[in-house]
Nucleic acid binder design. Structure first.
Lengths: 207, 207
DNA sequence: ACATGTGAAAGAGTTCACAGCC
DNA sequence: GGCTGTGAACTCTTTCACATGT
């Protein structure tokens, strides 16, 4: 949001967010009409309305398994200082890591944990562990009652249907870049072929 | 791919990759029919064909700017031992980091660099720098002749049209998880509202 | 004049369902 | 019988274009 402005157009928002003005208008209108024709959207009203829709105000307890460089990057990141989630526990299996303190929390063994350890049960689990451990950790998280997972491992996780999973897969992103470098800008989305001996990319070319 | 099998069905592939069998068949057929009706896809033929389509064989030179925990996670990751890309340079601006050696490479200043420093010019640039530096680094990378960027900063980058950009945005993923925890499983995609005072999520609810 | 909100059209991706082949 | 390949249907998303409101 530009400083000193109290109104912003769909065109501006689109340019800032990297999408078209039409998409901005369609999406914003879906959460209720609050733009003013002729001038645009009132910025404070807009922030207020979207913050309400997204954050709602609740801050979810979150746990992380696999305390390597990636986890440390997340822990130190300004992202997690916000209202969306707060880190309440760190897990690893490496004896040289368990017991150490990272970001003010002592790293523990996931196997030692159960739901009663927490005042408020964790809702979000982050997997920054090696791919080989991902399914086991996911199982442990689900047993703890976690309802949302984010994994950085290039592995499809089997979880109960009520658990949401988000995959953040750097290797797929890299493959997509490489594909675009070789062939032109064709349609190509990440997802398939994780389990083959080859690279994990789904090719969506149409004849 | 299952060990000891020389054929695999679209159903199996779908389960392994987390998509439907129909999608697997549709996608694979788009790169040429090479399944056998009644038995499935020949695994070695399949690997060979997909590897050819994706990797092509070329290994792209890649550079990274912003050598913090995230960059170290990527550098140490097994992902980058593969044929897709190899790291050829590391950059930072912090005097306490410039000059150190990480993963066998000495960290340098991006400003000191020009295309003539390389036998083969870098093709892929990774941005693990703070969001405030992202656009400047992207500009520097584009000047070096880089044609594909992957950024971990929650910032829309302005680059020439021939440059491909992939955004890996953990804060958006986290917002999406939080949204699913509060409301049910509704449609919601990442992308919009980066620039507002609020969280970066695009809401795709339909009336 | 300017910018939203929204029907209608277009586009992209997924799923159905079945003919055809092994 | 089993499984692929694909037309057709369907769903989801984006874009167009313009009536509507300030």
């Amino acid at each position: 949001m530009r400083r000193g402005r109290d109104t912003v157009s769909s065109d501006d928002l689109g340019r800032l967010a990297g999408v078209s003005a039409a998409t901005v208008r369609r999406d914003l209108s879906s959460i209720g009409p609050f733009g003013t024709r002729g001038s645009g959207y009132d910025t404070s009203h807009l922030s207020h309305r979207t913050a309400e829709l997204l954050g709602g105000g609740s801050t979810f307890p979150m746990v992380i398994a696999g305390i390597g460089n990636l986890a440390k990057a997340l822990i130190n990141s300004p992202l997690f200082g916000d209202r969306t989630a707060r880190i309440v526990a760190l897990y690893d299996v490496d004896p040289s890591i368990v017991g150490t303190t990272v970001g003010g929390l002592t790293v523990r063994l996931l196997a030692d944990e159960d739901a009663s350890s927490f005042a408020e049960p964790p809702a979000i689990g982050i997997l920054t562990c090696p791919a080989s451990a991902a399914q086991d950790v996911a199982d442990g998280f689900c047993d703890m009652g976690i309802r949302a997972l984010m994994t950085f491992s290039p592995r499809v996780l089997e979880v109960p249907p009520e658990v949401t999973v988000r995959y953040v897969d750097v290797s797929i992103e890299l493959q997509i870049l490489a594909y675009h470098l070789e062939h032109g800008r064709g349609p190509l989305n990440g997802g398939l072929l994780h389990s083959l001996g080859v690279s994990p990319v789904r090719v969506g070319l149409r004849p």
